[in-house]
Design a protein around this nucleic acid. Structure first.
Lengths: 167, 167
DNA sequence: CAAAATAATTTCAAGCTTGAAATTTCAAGC
DNA sequence: GCTTGAAATTTCAAGCTTGAAATTATTTTG
């Protein structure tokens, strides 16, 4: 199994470093949950919506021509059935439209209605402000290093079977 | 409202910096979800359990004398009703015990059974290894800087009402 | 072309999560 | 001793999430 990192299970890493890894991970989790909670709360109070809905709308906003359900679920990295439910609610709220795909009766194209686009544009503007209130005070060299470190983490291994990556 | 940061909504921040904030946040979210997914999957495959159960057990492991439901939910920063359900399942699995609190018929003390402690000890050991496989390759100065940056983020404001902090 | 494999989606059961409402118990104040 | 308010917990409805099974449509292949 993968052994290319300087610390892998087989190499008996320093206990102190293991503890440091754990500390970093727990802090990262805590900080992320903190920000997420703020975003959720703000979305709820100011727009009466949820983070999953926001995420779906963000993806559809970006792909103006719409996405198939399967594309949507793989873009968001959530399960198929999950997307079905969220889209169902967005459709009944009039924010999303389902369009059959010409030539494939199985597939469905999903896209924002004009109302959905307008709604998302307002939410996205507010969202940028919230995020900037939290991250905006980081000096740009610090945030650059953070970005780089997160990138390393995102591409680190860890699954005990095989694991796939995206581009 | 708070205006002590170099970037707040009222100050019309540089668009480029706003975008950078957003980039950092999205990357942070993605990296965290990546690690979380690995932990979830490993917990599921190797121990047939879930992350919320693991989190509850971790808290109870640390407080050997047990915690009240309210203490548990505030330690984990999740809602009361949430903890009720998870504890219910852990009790029926024999990992957790509910003990009435002497002198207060409302409160319940919750603590791990011996079996729960043993089970958690095994899971925690594996968990440390998984985390180390991901974070262990970060040079210690990088992880120190990461820790510090995350700390800054965790204490940044962002809620549009008042917001509370812990020690 | 029929059969078998593959693909796109939905359905389903189980569990997680929240905020709000309901319950039960405790603590003061009168 | 009541009554009122606060505290600890559970219940509840709604929504999110997953992995697996089921459904329907397409494609491949014998």
């Amino acid at each position: 199994m993968s052994n290319k990192n300087s610390q892998s299970a087989a190499l008996k890493p320093e206990p102190a470093l293991v503890k440091q890894s754990l500390r970093v991970w727990l802090k990262m989790l805590k900080a992320t949950k903190h920000v997420e909670a703020i975003v959720r709360e703000n979305l709820r109070v100011e727009f009466d919506t949820t983070l999953p809905r926001f995420d779906v709308m963000a993806a559809l906003y970006r792909f103006e021509d719409g996405l198939k359900m399967s594309e949507l679920s793989s873009a968001l990295r959530v399960s198929n059935g999950n997307v079905t439910g969220i889209i169902e609610r967005l459709v009944s709220d009039g924010a999303v439209l389902r369009v059959p795909v010409a030539g494939d009766k199985r597939a469905m194209l999903v896209r924002l209605t004009q109302r959905g686009r307008d709604e998302f544009a307002r939410m996205a503007a507010a969202h940028e402000i919230w995020i900037n209130e939290i991250f905006g005070s980081l000096p740009s060299d610090v945030s650059a290093e953070l970005l780089a470190t997160l990138d390393t983490i995102e591409h680190a291994q860890g699954l005990h079977n095989g694991e796939e990556h995206d581009a």
